[in-house]
Amino acid sequence: HEITLHINGRRVKLRFRDEKAAEILKEAAKKGLDEEELKKLAEELWR
């Protein structure tokens, strides 16, 4: 699955395995994680 989040006016595509991962990524984006941090988090969730 993929999700596209808008971060600092940019579109960031993240891959994720399940809905739980999608929710975690959305929450992290709301908390203000930047693009690099979100990509790292997405990679961690993928494993």
Score class of each variant (00 low, 15 high):
residue 19 E to D: 12
residue 43 E to M: 06
residue 25 L to C: 03
residue 5 L to E: 00
residue 26 K to S: 09
residue 37 E to G: 14
residue 33 L to Y: 13
residue 21 A to F: 05
residue 47 R to F: 14
residue 28 A to V: 04
residue 19 E to H: 14
residue 28 A to K: 06
residue 43 E to C: 06
residue 12 V to A: 01
residue 26 K to N: 07
residue 13 K to L: 05
residue 16 F to M: 06
residue 7 I to K: 02
residue 44 E to G: 06
residue 21 A to D: 15
residue 7 I to S: 05
residue 10 R to Y: 03
residue 33 L to R: 06
residue 37 E to Y: 10
residue 25 L to P: 00
residue 20 K to Q: 12
residue 15 R to C: 08
residue 36 E to D: 13
residue 14 L to D: 00
residue 19 E to V: 08
residue 45 L to T: 02
residue 23 E to H: 14
residue 20 K to F: 11
residue 27 E to H: 09
residue 38 L to V: 09
residue 26 K to H: 10
residue 19 E to R: 09
residue 6 H to M: 13
residue 40 K to L: 13
residue 21 A to H: 15
residue 47 R to V: 15
residue 16 F to T: 15
residue 26 K to P: 00
residue 45 L to E: 01
residue 3 I to G: 02
residue 37 E to Q: 13
residue 24 I to T: 09
residue 44 E to W: 10
residue 2 E to I: 10
residue 41 L to T: 02
residue 14 L to K: 00
residue 31 K to Y: 11
residue 36 E to V: 13
residue 28 A to H: 08
residue 14 L to Y: 04
residue 17 R to L: 15
residue 36 E to L: 12
residue 26 K to T: 12
residue 22 A to N: 04
residue 28 A to N: 06
residue 31 K to R: 14
residue 13 K to I: 14
residue 11 R to L: 15
residue 26 K to F: 11
residue 8 N to S: 06
residue 9 G to H: 03
residue 40 K to V: 09
residue 9 G to K: 02
residue 25 L to E: 00
residue 46 W to R: 02
residue 29 A to R: 04
residue 39 K to I: 13
residue 5 L to C: 05
residue 45 L to A: 02
residue 7 I to V: 14
residue 20 K to P: 10
residue 31 K to S: 13
residue 31 K to M: 15
residue 2 E to W: 15
residue 1 H to F: 15
residue 37 E to D: 12
residue 22 A to S: 08
residue 41 L to M: 10
residue 28 A to E: 07
residue 5 L to H: 01
residue 18 D to P: 01
residue 17 R to D: 04
residue 15 R to E: 05
residue 21 A to Y: 05
residue 24 I to R: 07
residue 2 E to A: 04
residue 10 R to D: 04
residue 24 I to D: 04
residue 32 G to A: 05
residue 9 G to W: 00
residue 39 K to T: 14
residue 2 E to K: 05
residue 26 K to L: 14
residue 16 F to W: 05
residue 5 L to T: 01
residue 20 K to A: 14
residue 42 A to G: 05
residue 44 E to P: 00
residue 9 G to F: 00
residue 16 F to I: 15
residue 16 F to S: 09
residue 2 E to F: 14
residue 43 E to P: 00
residue 22 A to T: 04
residue 23 E to M: 12
residue 6 H to K: 07
residue 8 N to D: 10
residue 9 G to C: 06
residue 45 L to H: 02
residue 23 E to N: 13
residue 36 E to K: 11
residue 26 K to A: 08
residue 42 A to I: 05
residue 10 R to K: 15
residue 42 A to D: 01
residue 7 I to M: 05
residue 42 A to P: 00
residue 10 R to E: 07
residue 12 V to F: 03
residue 11 R to Q: 15
residue 5 L to I: 14
